[in-house]
């Protein structure tokens, strides 16, 4: 008699579990998966508004003949290959320096290095734009120091504009990643470090032989997050360089936005480009996980 009643209770609890998670799960289905499916269908169509017709893979073919899109792809990978490693290594070095029991003002250092995270993406993009403008602070200082005669327009030359974007990204995100490493380092027994020091290991050896291997899961996670973030860069491209000069610093998301809402809207083509980002995110995350596993 008691057994069916207990089953009933379990079923009741099981059902209330579904009630708890239903609103969130339904919203994710409606706001992520449904649009994703719609974008896939859209990517095989062409036209404006309700006048959409099937076009097969034309949009996907066009992508690879589109010079601006290829430029945005190159830029995104340039930011990925140069900026992400610099930032992660810097964050690792800072975190391992701060993970020192004998260090003074630890909290102050951590707060200051973490502080850039408190600024909005638009805000910091505009601060850096002002700093590096022709009549901006950096040029003023360089002229005062006698290094330049007139202001150099950093944002009007493709390479210097890309470097400014990279500097800005490193500035904004290093502290963020450092916090991940600091919390990962707290799981490593401090005595491991003390023992290594007694054995006479150099700081560089301690860093490469203890810190990096033990933090591997965290490093993998930050690498995946940064890759994902870099592939979706938008605010910086729009507000720091406006994609210019002549689309030379434009990112993929920025170009997709322009294609959808700035130029004559071409939702089909924009959707096809967005699918390429989706595929890249998935492939790169997969590769990174594989690489991360292998080193075990």
């Amino acid at each position: 008699m008691s057994k069916p009643k207990k089953m009933n209770l379990n079923q009741k609890q099981n059902l209330s579990g579904w009630f708890f998670l239903a609103p969130a799960a339904i919203m994710i289905a409606l706001m992520s998966f449904l649009p994703m499916l719609k974008a896939l269908i859209l990517s095989f169509k062409t036209g404006i508004g309700t006048n959409m017709t099937w076009t097969g893979i034309t949009n996907y073919v066009r992508m690879f003949q589109d010079a601006v899109f290829m430029q945005s792809l190159k830029n995104t990978f340039l930011y990925l290959i140069i900026q992400v490693p610099i930032m992660l290594i810097l964050a690792l070095i800072l975190a391992s320096m701060l993970n020192d029991k004998h260090l003074r003002c630890k909290g102050l250092f951590r707060t200051m290095i973490f502080l850039p995270c408190a600024t909005s993406l638009v805000s910091y993009a505009i601060i850096f734009r002002s700093l590096f403008a022709v009549d901006g602070f950096v040029n003023t200082i360089l002229i005062k120091l006698g290094l330049l005669n007139t202001g150099y327009n950093f944002l009007a030359h493709p390479n210097s504009a890309r470097i400014i974007i990279i500097i800005a990204l490193v500035w904004r995100w290093t502290g963020y990643n450092m916090v991940f490493y600091l919390s990962g380092l707290q799981n490593i027994e401090y005595s491991v470090y003390e023992a290594a020091k007694i054995d006479g290991a150099s700081p560089f050896k301690i860093f490469t032989k203890i810190t990096v291997p033990l933090l591997k899961p965290t490093i993998l996670l930050t690498a995946i997050m940064s890759t994902n973030g870099t592939l979706q860069l938008f605010d910086e491209s729009v507000n720091l360089t406006a994609g210019g000069p002549a689309n030379s610093t434009i990112t993929m998301s920025h170009y997709i936005y322009n294609m959808s809402f700035k130029y004559v809207p071409n939702f089909g083509y924009a959707a096809a480009m967005s699918y390429l980002i989706l595929i890249l995110v998935a492939v790169l995350a997969f590769v990174q996980m594989k690489v991360g596993d292998k080193r075990d």
């Binding site: 994710i28 649009p35 994703m36």
Partner: peptide, 28 residues
């Protein structure tokens, strides 16, 4: 709290949504 096989599967599907870039859902 109420986890079972079915809910774990749903959770894994939800985690996949983390990979979806906003650019891909923005237009729809």
């Amino acid at each position: 709290i109420y986890h079972d096989k079915g809910k774990d599967i749903v959770m894994n599907i939800i985690l996949l949504a983390m990979m979806v870039p906003f650019a891909a859902t923005m237009i729809p």
